[in-house]
Amino acid sequence: MSAFVQQLLVLIVAAVAAMIWLGINALVWVYCERKFAGHIQRRPGPFEVGPHGALQPLIDGLKLMGKQLLTPDNADAILYWLAPILSMLPVLLLFLPIPYGPVLTGMDVNLGLLLILAFSSFNGLAVLLAGWSSNNKWGLLGAARAVSQTVAYEIPLLLVVLAVTFMTGTLSLTEITNMQAGHIGNWFIWKQPLAFLIFLVAMFGETNRAPFDLAEAESELTAGFHTEYSSMGFGLFFMAEYGYMVVMCSVCSVLFLGGYHGPFPGVDGWWWMLLKTFALLSFMVWVRWTYPRVRFDQLLNINWKWLLPLATFNLLATALILKL
């Protein structure tokens, strides 16, 4: 009984910690993204609120909270307001099984990877609901795009994750991390370079980030699925987007970059995990501010004609090599 209570307490603490972690990440990365964008474009980015504009995302959040919550005419109000919540909630859950440090794991489940992959698909559903229920033609187009995109990009993602789990024989992220202990040569990126590349590309598709941000494609669909959302309705989508980015980058660093293990023995710790995740996030931001957006049919073509065959080939090759 006491063990159960103890586990429950750990879970609650972890859930609260995950919430805080998500909040901090959203704030930090909104700020970092705008600063990155600014410096790439050779302007300072936010600068007025706080030192170097550091409090800008906080103020933006407050501003969003102060805005009126508008439900469009003839929108399905329940689904309309359910969508942002449905987009946000799973993100909290996704942080639990990720090992941020040797003891910094919210909930060490042996099916952690599966949990993450399963719950991250909720985002597609939330986006579909948002676009569908807001009674807006742009929203509808955005929702239709989002669904085909998330469904399509999940498949190569699953296939490369499967290739990694073939090697590890476990779905627990902690164990996958521990198998990469030692030095940099043990990281799975060297054993699965193709899988890493595919994961990287699919990550952009899965998180709706530019150049694959088709669901909100600003210059085509005005704002896509969240055209009608105001106030924190939009704020939640926005936070969820950054939440998914952090989760995806964390998973990527666990699967391929050795998680909290350092590049040489004896320096393991949560800082490595943080460093790797943030490096990947910076890369995502860098890519966003460099490329134009792909067209929708091209997006699917990249997936079905390139990523999927390559991921399948990678999986078969892994299986074959393991068998031999």
Partner: peptide
């Protein structure tokens, strides 16, 4: 060409700002 693009934006990221503040 994608890598070249990243190289260019990366280069400008490191250069000083040009806007008047």
């Amino acid at each position: 060409s994608l890598i070249v693009g990243l190289k260019i934006t990366g280069k400008y990221f490191c250069k000083p700002l040009i806007t008047v503040h």
